[in-house]
């Protein structure tokens, strides 16, 4: 018997800038995990992954990542995905300070 499906989000990296993005229910890419579409059905997840990965000139490397519903929207489950919502732990850089890759402004 196959394992029970756990909820997912579609995530990738932005082609031009490189930072982490998530697919929303309206087919846009958000930099905020909480605004991602939480996908609770396996067939729908595969479809959404195809639709996301199809946006080849916007994003790179789309995949499904485990997520669960939190207070403000979907939250990551695995620590790797938690780090992707924040940035590195050695410097206040990246998403945790609302900063994109590239030079500091």
């Amino acid at each position: 018997m196959s394992r029970k499906f756990t909820p997912k989000v579609v995530t990738a990296n932005d082609l031009l800038v490189g930072d982490v993005v998530y697919l929303t229910a309206t087919n846009e890419w958000t930099r905020d995990h909480a605004k991602a579409e939480l996908i609770e059905d396996e067939a729908h997840a595969q479809l959404r992954l195809l639709e996301g990965a199809g946006q080849k000139n916007i994003i790179v490397g789309a995949y499904l990542a485990d997520a669960r519903l939190g207070e403000n929207g979907p939250e990551p489950v695995h620590f790797r995905e938690v780090f992707r919502t924040r940035g590195p732990s050695n410097y206040a850089m990246g998403k945790q300070v609302g900063e994109l890759p590239g030079p500091r402004s």
């Binding site: 990296n13 031009l16 490189g18 930072d19 490397g61 790797r80 780090f83 590195p88 990246g94 890759p101």
Partner: peptide, 28 residues
């Protein structure tokens, strides 16, 4: 050509890797 869409990621990836450009967790 990658930015204007005439190269796909599958085509571009080996070219960027030959030039030392990786895509990592938070950025290139």
């Amino acid at each position: 050509r990658r930015i204007d869409g005439s190269l796909t990621e599958d085509e571009f990836k080996p070219l960027r890797l030959m030039n030392g450009l990786y895509l990592q967790l938070h950025a290139y």
